[in-house]
Simulated scan of single mutants.
Amino acid sequence: MTGERAAELEELGIVWDTADAGFEQNLGAARAYYELHGTLAAPRGAAIMDVQVGQWLTNIRRPRGLGKDPVRAERRAAALAAIDPDWNPAVLGWTVDWQRHYAYLAQLLADGARPAAVVPGVTRHGEDVGRWLAAQRRNWDRLNAEQQHRLGELGVKKAPRAGKAAAKTTTASGPCAGGEAFQKGLRALQQYVARTGSATVPRSHVETVDIDGKDHAVRLGVWLSNTKTRRDKLDREQHAAFTELGIHWAR
């Protein structure tokens, strides 16, 4: 059959390979999912355009999931990579869940959020990116070199060692000494800035924050005002934390 006749039949809806036709349909759904979420690291239950795209992506990431024919598999992998180069994070050494949260963190920062403001409770597409980020900083040494590099490019750093924090708490003096009350206030301020996009806090405002699974009501406006009057007692790291959140008097 000539190429011209084949093209005419294709225009009439003839499908030569039903497997490829099914792949193309699912690929279209994957493209739509990426346009909405900015990543193909979809959870298994994700669906779009009446396609269970999350399960489909899970299946094709498995060995020989793109088919037994190596040429066809390579062509399909290239089509997926054209949508999202990190569509199969297992080859990079991490999970789909890690990739999805990383992508959402990058999006939050691209939208103007500061890393310090992405605290537990800050979400994107229903995922608690803040809680995930705190875990990455806390477990930094468990990440591979590429994960550390990618997070570092976003401005994320390893969490300070608990020993140093404890020592600072015991040696510092005054109500701004970096102890539990200060950390609670800072967490509340970070959450407030992430939610409102403003570092201006009314004096009467009370912010409720989740710390270790418990809600704490912080009189944020009063705390911030009191901290301002004692700003000469802040150490360098505390000044930096305030400055990063847009508190100009801390510079």
Rank of each mutant, 00 (worst) to 15 (best):
H216K: 00
V91M: 06
A6L: 15
G3R: 03
N88P: 01
K184C: 07
G45S: 09
D235H: 08
D69H: 10
A177G: 15
W16E: 12
Q99S: 15
P85K: 05
T171E: 07
K157S: 07
A165K: 14
R61V: 03
R138H: 13
P175N: 08
R203Q: 11
V71D: 11
L108N: 13
R5N: 10
P43M: 05
E127F: 03
C176A: 14
C176Q: 06
V15Q: 03
E180F: 03
G28T: 08
G246D: 12
R142E: 15
E4D: 09
T227W: 00
D232F: 05
R124E: 09
V51M: 02
V209I: 05
D212K: 05
H37V: 09
W87D: 08
N88G: 01
Y33S: 10
P89R: 10
D210I: 03
A73P: 00
G3D: 05
A194Q: 12
N139W: 15
E74P: 01
R76L: 00
S173A: 06
R236H: 11
I60F: 07
A145Y: 04
W140K: 07
K184Q: 14
R124D: 14
F242M: 10
P70Y: 03
A162D: 14
L92I: 06
I211D: 02
G126M: 08
L151W: 04
Y104A: 09
Q25Y: 13
A19Q: 13
V201A: 02
A6H: 11
L57E: 00
L92Q: 02
T18S: 08
A117K: 08
A217D: 11
N226A: 07
H205L: 00
D210K: 06
M1Y: 03
R131K: 14
A7I: 13
E74I: 06
A135H: 04
A188P: 02
A77T: 03
I83D: 05
Y192I: 09
H125M: 11
I14T: 06
R62M: 13
Y34T: 10
R31M: 13
L27W: 02
N139G: 15
W87K: 03
P202V: 00
A199Y: 00
E4Q: 09
S198E: 04
A116G: 12
V156K: 01
N144W: 04
K214N: 06
G121L: 14
Q136C: 02
Q148T: 08
K228D: 08
A217S: 05
A167E: 12
G155N: 10
K164C: 07
H248A: 13
R100N: 05
R76T: 02
K233N: 08
P70L: 05
A145W: 05
S198I: 01
I60Y: 04
A19L: 15
V156D: 00
A250Y: 07
H101R: 14
H239A: 12
R62Y: 04
L109W: 10
L27E: 01
R161V: 13
A77C: 05
L66C: 06
T58S: 12
W94V: 12
N139K: 14
A78P: 00
D235K: 11
C176S: 09
H239G: 09
R131M: 13
